[in-house]
Design a protein around this nucleic acid. Sequence first.
DNA 1: TGCCCTAATGACCGTTAGTCAGTGGCTGAC
DNA 2: GTCAGCCACTGACTAACGGTCATTAGGGCA
Lengths: 216, 216
Amino acid sequence: MAVAERRERERIARREAILDAAQRLTAEVGYQALRMDAVADAAELSKGTIYLYFANKEALCAGVASRLIDELLPVLEKNLAKTSSGLDAVQQVLQTYFDFTREHPHHFRFAVSWLSSGERMDDSTEAFQLYRERVGHVLQHAVTAIERGQADGSVRLDVDPLPQALQLWSSMLGVILINLNKESVSQRLPMPVDLDQVVNVHIEAMARALARKERS
Amino acid sequence: MAVAERRERERIARREAILDAAQRLTAEVGYQALRMDAVADAAELSKGTIYLYFANKEALCAGVASRLIDELLPVLEKNLAKTSSGLDAVQQVLQTYFDFTREHPHHFRFAVSWLSSGERMDDSTEAFQLYRERVGHVLQHAVTAIERGQADGSVRLDVDPLPQALQLWSSMLGVILINLNKESVSQRLPMPVDLDQVVNVHIEAMARALARKERS
DNA sequence: TGCCCTAATGACCGTTAGTCAGTGGCTGAC
DNA sequence: GTCAGCCACTGACTAACGGTCATTAGGGCA
């Protein structure tokens, strides 16, 4: 049945075309302002068709998010390869993730709303499964960096790699969240602040907290 | 004009009654699921009337949030009075804020969406001004704790109190965000994790990063 | 040629934030 | 005491948007 195979290829191609359109629009306006009608228009399809390929708006967004986080992993691995110690690698994971969110702020906002969605978001779809897996890979790099540091003597031995990696990840999440919205946050705070500086302060603080010996 | 004064009192009382209703409902369902019709029903007013007292849903939520954060400040001050050193006070600020968000998870979610809203949210209303001011007070306590630690020798001298307080605040934000959604986050991660432990790991790490001397 | 199956359509629905022309009761001038 | 005017309040209405479904188009197979 060559017909069935062609149909399957066409189906995948159409799905990718929808994702292309959604990704383009998302880069402009973000996930929350993304309109399903606009996606349909941009993909030159009717709205109903979008729902033949994605269960709902969130599943579509997860599809876009999966594509983006795919771009992060090779960059992260390239940067990690250059590091001289485990502690250096820890800092590199944080810095690379930060740089990535600067390039793709909407992706980060989506990740935050996904993580904080509670029961609201139905993430049982295939697109979410994939996204979840990718996030796990990033976290695994942090765990590995800590273990490497404990092996090479740059990271203190009394930290537990997995909880510590989660601490690094979640605290970085907060710092990035604030930095990403620095214009509005600094307006919204009563004191003057330099929120770019805070990112460096944070990465430095994390390094001090993990370092085996007091750093200069 | 005793009439004008009575009118003003009534206006304030009505506003408070609306806030009462909104706060009650918010505690049940959260800000996002709060329906303006439901607020109107609960306050025994028509929906239009709600909009005579609050510009929009966000302003109403900011009103509720202001009330809640008002509860935090006295508790924080009480807890800080018991601390034995500046470093201890830093930890107490973090712990108290964490405990508060456990009691009022919806408030925290609102704060996060406010901070990450970018241009979306119009926070020029009076309710937001007040809320902003209160958040500033909490931050100020963190700054003061660091300065106190530098004075009493518990905190290293090479940290700049304001950026460091912002680092503490924003990183704690991320850790709390993850903890608040721990059920869904742990489901969504491919590895098993204890997210309550991560909060303690974080506060410990922060203390190590700020401590003047290596802690045991 | 004609039947069938799949992909695609777009008018339609439900929900919900926000609006506005209309109502009624209190006030204060006369 | 009367009544014009003001003001708080009303609730039906609109707009926007995510999601649905009865219907249609057209390629493939007997």
